[in-house]
Amino acid sequence: MFYRPENGHGLPHNPFNAIVTPRPIAWIGTRGSDGRDNLAPYSFFNAVAYEPPQVMFASTSAKEDRGDTKDSVANIRDTGVFAINVVEYAARDVMNTTSGSWDRDVDEFALAGLEKAACSTIDCPRVSGAPATLECKLTQIVTLPGAANFVVFGEVIGVHMRDDCIVDGRFDVTRYQPLARMGYRDYAVVREVFSLNRPDD
């Protein structure tokens, strides 16, 4: 099968996000200029640079009470900071609870029964007990073609790691089993890890 996205695929569900998988999930904590806290997952997310460490995530839809975007991007525009929490398999249900299109005045931490912690370098909430949290300072927001498509780039200026995830001096993902987004309503969990040496090692 071949299709041009501009002409449609003819399938019951869009296959695009099922092809680009698995995707890590950024569970993004923000605080608006009005002091309201927000927590929402985004699976168009990745690390993009080592020095200085930088990350990105994309938001691809909007809410009526936020105009051209969603709460996370609107808050980041206002404050210039955000926290990316790593999602573990054990948190899959509470993460899913925070994915709803809740009103801007809803605190998803409270809605999902999550303990909130303060970040160390930015005025922003994070998920207490997450395997890791990246405290980020906004560097730029890029507008992409299409309605409500924004890519947010940030520099990581603080890193929290849960002590039990550090084994022999390494951050060990097998200790918490990362959750990944597949297509449609499907997810995956990382339970098996292997190493490959590069030709120039």
Rank of each mutant, 00 (worst) to 15 (best):
E135I: 00
V142I: 15
F109I: 07
S43F: 03
A58F: 00
T21I: 15
V156F: 09
E88R: 12
K137E: 13
V55N: 02
S101Y: 03
V127N: 04
S120N: 10
K70N: 06
F171S: 01
F82S: 04
S128Q: 13
K63E: 04
A110W: 04
A110S: 13
G169I: 11
A83T: 09
I166A: 06
S59M: 07
F109L: 10
T174F: 01
T97C: 07
G100K: 11
N75Y: 04
T60D: 12
M56A: 09
D164T: 13
G67P: 06
M161E: 14
Y176F: 15
L111M: 13
E88M: 05
D200V: 12
H9T: 08
W27A: 06
V151Y: 00
R191P: 00
M161F: 02
L111F: 14
L138N: 01
A130S: 12
R185F: 15
D103C: 01
M95R: 08
A91R: 11
D93Q: 12
T97K: 12
V86R: 00
L39N: 00
S43I: 06
K137V: 12
A74P: 00
N149P: 00
A62R: 08
I122K: 02
Y50A: 15
E192S: 10
T143C: 05
Y89P: 01
D201M: 08
N17M: 15
E155H: 05
T97S: 04
F171N: 02
G67M: 11
D107L: 03
A180V: 13
C124R: 00
F45R: 07
Y176C: 05
H13M: 14
F109D: 02
T69S: 09
P53V: 06
C165G: 08
R77T: 07
D163N: 12
W102M: 11
K70I: 15
I84T: 07
G10D: 04
P12Q: 13
P178Y: 06
A180Y: 11
